[in-house]
Nucleic acid binder design. Sequence first.
DNA 1: TATGAATGAGTCTTCATTCAT
DNA 2: AATGAATGAAGACTCATTCAT
Lengths: 191, 191, 191, 191
Amino acid sequence: MSHAGYRRLMSLDRERVLKEAAALLTRRATASMDEIARAAGISRATLHRHFAGRDALVRALEQLGIERFGRALDEARLEEGDAADAVRRLIDRAEPVAGLLSFLYTENQLFEDEMDEGWNRLDARVQALFLRGQEEGAFRVDLSPAWLTDALYGLIASGAWAVHDGRVAAKDLTRMIAELLLGGARRRAER
Amino acid sequence: MSHAGYRRLMSLDRERVLKEAAALLTRRATASMDEIARAAGISRATLHRHFAGRDALVRALEQLGIERFGRALDEARLEEGDAADAVRRLIDRAEPVAGLLSFLYTENQLFEDEMDEGWNRLDARVQALFLRGQEEGAFRVDLSPAWLTDALYGLIASGAWAVHDGRVAAKDLTRMIAELLLGGARRRAER
Amino acid sequence: MSHAGYRRLMSLDRERVLKEAAALLTRRATASMDEIARAAGISRATLHRHFAGRDALVRALEQLGIERFGRALDEARLEEGDAADAVRRLIDRAEPVAGLLSFLYTENQLFEDEMDEGWNRLDARVQALFLRGQEEGAFRVDLSPAWLTDALYGLIASGAWAVHDGRVAAKDLTRMIAELLLGGARRRAER
Amino acid sequence: MSHAGYRRLMSLDRERVLKEAAALLTRRATASMDEIARAAGISRATLHRHFAGRDALVRALEQLGIERFGRALDEARLEEGDAADAVRRLIDRAEPVAGLLSFLYTENQLFEDEMDEGWNRLDARVQALFLRGQEEGAFRVDLSPAWLTDALYGLIASGAWAVHDGRVAAKDLTRMIAELLLGGARRRAER
DNA sequence: TATGAATGAGTCTTCATTCAT
DNA sequence: AATGAATGAAGACTCATTCAT
């Protein structure tokens, strides 16, 4: 087997382990390295060979989260068409990444100040969407893009919990988040 | 000092420790018993005398959280006046409890199914508020009270983070949450 | 109240506590100071006022054990009459002290070498009884008085367990120990 | 080294640790996990890897004690030949296990009722020996097999102590126990 | 004197990590 | 490269003892 082939295999393996770790840690943030290893079907020692330590694993998950959220933003084509529709697409695509991002957010309270560069870039893209909506006259301007962005994250997170706990049907999730974020709870005169 | 005085002091002491524990664990959910004890200015052993173990401490915090949120609901007078105004009062009062509730929510993933009776009662009161708003024609009916309730929690949580991270001014918090929850991001025709 | 009266009261109290401690530790050698205090109906702190520490308590129990066993020897009138009958009386009187002595024996493995003077005196009295029996021609001489003494202790201890676990009736205990110790298991030609 | 070799080593290792633990706990029942680990030449953590906790270790020692005592019974060939001779062989073989059994007996006061099945089987074999002796007319019938069995244990235990404390010579032990148990202290007319 | 409260010292246990095969 | 074994470090918990009232 070629050297490249080897590296490719390793990479696939690593990705699989990462995926399992994400799935497990998303459910239980305090899962031990042992549990993670077992969930991935490898030994603790091997897990440590893939990721130098717990921190390294979390950092790798961070990259995974950024990558996934980045892809979600790409797929949502934030710059195209009606801003409200773009928000709807964003919610739809971002929702599967909610658990992972939520875990990373909680986990990284420690490293607070050294917020990842990559993350900031993605965050800026979301804020830019809300800014565009305001500039186009679609969104109100008395709520800052930064707040609308944070609010979006919060709604996605609580929406994910609501589905997980069975209080909201999975198929309604995107619509409920979008409707609330865009239109709010108050009844509108015209609609 | 009288016997009653003694008992009162003990109670105050316990409450003080609990408060410190809440403050610390809200900031860092993984704080050790040692850190908690030091934060409260007592020894680890004394902490263990007050609360039989970590679980007991968390359960006591649960009661504290429920008590505080209950008081917030009382003070917000949910049954009085305009439903939208009641929501505003609720946000204002609930916001200081956000951190604690958020911690408890995360911590109790383990005990998931045995959700506290007391908590359910409080949750029902919030849902009842949204239902009243819908019945009075103030709130839209295509978003369930359960979801509006979860959304409120999510917005309060992300709002608290936004303030904590300096993205939103503390004094604006209540208004921003209320405006978004009630009116949404979309610009209204009439305003 | 007179000074002597005070001391007398204290002494009574102390004795009662000691008795409770003996009863509890005989059952569970690892009982904590807390349990002992509660069994005696006083606080841990008060227990510590009576006995400077756990060691002091055990030493006091040692004295109690020696005193009780000494009284048993006195009551058995070891020097009087038939040696075999004296052994029977000894077993009968010593049996209630068995638990306490057993506890002390186990507990004092640590202090091994500094065996109590008082205890040695009592032990010597028992050995003297067996020696007398040998000299009078009643007991065989190929088993040393020291071994017969140890054997007696062992049989009393296992007898106490057997009663406690319900394998032997309490009323039969003295007879069974005495018969075995004196006559052995083998069937005799003449009897 | 082969895989089988690996597994065999592990097993040997575990057995060695168990042996050291038995030796230490027999001498001092309150030895800490740390001391046990050091006695076995491993770290506390490794000890915990071999035995999930103190309870698990004690339970493993229980199995070891049963196994050893069982082997002693096998080697004593209780069913063969003269019952008295079988008792002598039993004492000779059981004596090395005395310390361990004594420790287990004391330790398990807590679990009292759930006496081990395996142990009961062994106990029954000893009782059966005494019953056989009675049926063959060799042993007296006014002392129950159950009591003779308990008495045997008690004599072995006190004999072991007597040797340990230097009151009886190790080489005489078996004979002294056997003579006392079988013939008693009283001088026989015929001999 | 008696006791509720406090604590230092120690034990058990778990975890992330390294080692040796 | 993968893994069973080993371990240092750290956390939870308990206990005997002391303090302050």
